[in-house]
Design a protein around this nucleic acid. Structure first.
Lengths: 217, 217
DNA sequence: GTCCACAATATTGTTGACAAATTAGTCGGC
DNA sequence: GCCGACTAATTTGTCAACAATATTGTGGAC
């Protein structure tokens, strides 16, 4: 039981990852039997995982017809971004209010020269990794579990789209500039300004998505 | 199968309701067998429902030890209110942006004399019902499914607390005044003002909770 | 060749039995 | 009488078989 329980936890994590990376592309059917065999887990476990994925909005289940990865259209992505803008903004504000300004110094430095290099050289994986680091640190500092869970769910759905936005022409440069503005406000301990800047950043990202919609979705 | 499927949907709804109404008080243990028998459903169904409840943060499951209703302390309620303030604010703003100002006229009237009567007479059930009506209408008008789902989840956790806040001395009067301000802005089509007022309303409600914490939690 | 009816296959939904773990109860030693 | 080890009962976790449903494949009429 201990063994299969580990497998079950791994299952959910792996499925989330595969969906986020479009290894299972939108519209792909997920078969209970195949996954059960692959992970050495009973079908009941797979079904349990499916339930979780469905609630997170990653898959859609139709009775007697199985589960498939949800296909996002622009309107749904817009909805996600509307919510994301508010929640990420709140997250940054709380993080600033609940931490010492000095604690962001290392990130300010990281987003200086090092990030500049990543952008110039087109090292998007590194760029994204450091962005993710900033996000994680902010969530921890915000000290709000409910918010953290919701951002987690939102990010599962938005991750792949964010990856596609970043490689758009000029987007990484603009994004870096905006993140520096956010960090500057955080470093000064100006919570309201940090929130404002973060929201501008996300809105700008959404505008970018809208402009290049046909290339992304 | 059709029969038990209906039962399964009912199960989740009823469990949410019972937890919200503190029929199952915080800390209460939920037994799979008992519920399966009561609803004429297999244990697998109950487990599925438990999974959903757990993800919504209504129950906590410990391996091999079962499920129990989560016990909220002030810090968790604060977290919920922080998120709720942002999301309800967003909801009102979107609702105003995406509907005609005239469409709120009936609610403006409803929140005039009729609500005044409810407050004066201490008819809290009616007061709450109409508040819920306003909320529903706003969510529909906002046209954002992701947001709607999150508000639904948040409200499940906050409902009973809201009921307890409303009966606090002077709270219903203050709340009504604030809701009128929100509706006035909505009626004028001023989305930003409506959002601001709604957030003020929720913050005020949270302040009230803080002051009377010991009587509520 | 196309369409429809029907059978064969594959997939999901459901159930009950069994295993593992926890909790409650009991007995004996001190 | 109190504590700890052992047993019994309860409860959760897992699985595999069975039923219901949907999908695919096949044959025949036209």
């Amino acid at each position: 039981m201990q063994r299969s329980r580990r497998n079950a936890v791994a299952l959910l994590k792996v499925l989330r990852e595969r969906i986020a990376r479009r290894e299972y592309p939108p519209g792909a059917k997920l078969l209970e039997n195949d996954l059960a065999r692959e992970f050495g887990v009973s079908r009941a476990r797979v079904r349990e995982a499916f339930g979780a994925l469905e609630q997170r909005g990653l898959i859609r289940r139709i009775p007697n017809r199985g589960a498939e990865v949800v296909r996002l259209d622009l309107s749904q992505v817009s909805e996600i971004y509307e919510v994301r803008e508010m929640l990420e903004g709140l997250c940054v504000r709380l993080a600033v209010q609940r931490s010492k300004p000095e604690s962001w110094q290392d990130l300010v430095r990281l987003f200086g020269k090092p990030m500049e290099r990543h952008v110039k050289r087109g090292e998007f994986e590194d760029y994204i990794a450091k962005l993710e680091l900033l996000r994680r640190r902010t969530i921890v500092a915000a000290r709000n579990r409910v918010l953290a869970d919701m951002l987690d769910s939102i990010n599962d759905r938005a991750r792949e789209i964010m990856r596609r936005i970043i490689i758009l022409p000029g987007r990484a440069e603009a994004g870096l500039k905006q993140h520096r503005a956010v960090l500057a406000a955080m470093r000064k301990g100006d919570a309201a300004a940090a929130e404002r800047r973060r929201r501008e950043n996300i809105r700008s990202s959404r505008d970018c998505l809208r402009r290049y919609e046909s290339f992304i979705l």
